[in-house]
Amino acid sequence: MAKLNILEFPDPRLRTIAEPVEQVDDEIRKIVDDMFETMYDAPGIGLAATQVNVHKRIVTIDISEEGNDPLVMINPEFTVLQDELEEMQEGCLSVPGFYEEVKRPNRILLKALDRDGNPYELEAEGLLAVCIQHELDHLNGKLFVDYLTALKRNRIRGKLEKKHRLESQQA
């Protein structure tokens, strides 16, 4: 397994729309393993392949406190079960250090393939529902900062650009 580099906002590659996975084979499973390692190390509770510059429809999630409940979602899709919106504070490994409130439907039905390519369905609510929607947005080139006001988004962009400049000077 290998830890992968995580792209950070406003990197334009985060805007790429990911391609469906045609066949779940060892190559895909290797990507999944690397994504878990990267996610647990970060630490994060969800990671989309887009964030590690792999533009395939793959998501890894583990919202358990002990980090022992890994979920793999290949070619995931969801439908909203309840239109009611819930506000939750979100953060993102691609927007490090920033947390903002985002409103999303709080119950969804997920359909995806697992690690072996078998289809499954999952009803999710609360944090898991939020996390799935957050990661699926990544596969469509969308970030949680897109839900914020332009003012907030630009402030975050400015701060991260400054951080990236400092990092490249130190490197």
Partner: peptide, 8 residues
């Protein structure tokens, strides 16, 4: 995603 952390 990163879960928000309550510092308190």
């Amino acid at each position: 995603m990163v879960e928000s952390i309550n510092v308190r």
